[in-house]
Amino acid sequence: MLNFVLRRLLATIPVLLIVAVLVFLMLRLAPGDPAAILAGDAASTEQIARIRTNLGLDRPIVVQFGIWAGNMLAGDLGESFYYKMKVVKLIGQRLEPTLALATFTILFAVLVSVPLGVVAAWRFGGWFDRALMGFSVLGFSIPVFVLAYILIYLVSLKLGLLPVQGYQRIGDGFWPFFRHLILPSVTLSVIYIALIARVTRASVLEALGEDYIRTARAKGLPEFRVLVRHGLANAAVPIVTVIGIGIALLIGGVVVTESVYAIPGLGRLTVDAVLARDFPTIQGVILFFSFVYVLLNLLIDLSYVFLDPRIRY
């Protein structure tokens, strides 16, 4: 097991290296000039050239990569062209909102979708099952921003229950923090509820057809126990896999939600950095995302051991 973990951790190094090289090259080959963007509208070409020199962008790409890679190996992701701040600090500032949003979203999604999926499987073909399938199609189809505007209009503007926008750090108190996350999390969770509920339904449905379920029922176990202890537990591997992938997608896929609800998270940072051709920040954020994906995949793989005793590493 320990060997497996170590091997997987070591395997992240070449993955991150490949990502680093690809991102670096793609950014340099993409159109757009950070110096021209920074200089502002009325700047002359000479001023832009001076800024380019100051940023080191007039050097050969190989030299630029060497400097950046050297700094990266020393744990320094560089300084943002745009914000004149260390990229590590920028990521640190934006991590909490994104993590909070992702955590609340996935928690809410799991708490709602797994019971729904189990009940739908239990009542396979009934009205509840059909209603859930209908909802999941709707959940997949409705764009996040449309749902966000509808919820804001109803819950915030008409009922006045929750704020329209903004984020409060957890350090400012749990209630303001939580209150600002309710609508964004609900908005973002709908698609995950649809996804996880469908997968749960399918997995539990398959498990409910197994012999051990019939045996459990024959033993006279209560139906709830049959469903949870024997049905859900044996259907857990695909569900956990989907949840894990969902978390990974959430971390990088919260841009629209962060925009509509004005949450200063990593998604917005990435978009702003791309629009400003802020190379060090883009590189830093993508490396960070890559590391998170690799780590999440490892955690998912490790969880299989606990969910299915037949799996050994």
Partner: peptide, 19 residues
């Protein structure tokens, strides 16, 4: 200065609600 609120409709909503 709220620098995070850049969605045009969200800006109007926030002003309407007094945020």
């Amino acid at each position: 200065w709220n620098l995070a609120l850049r969605d045009a409709q969200a800006q109007v909503n926030a002003l309407a609600k007094g945020e």
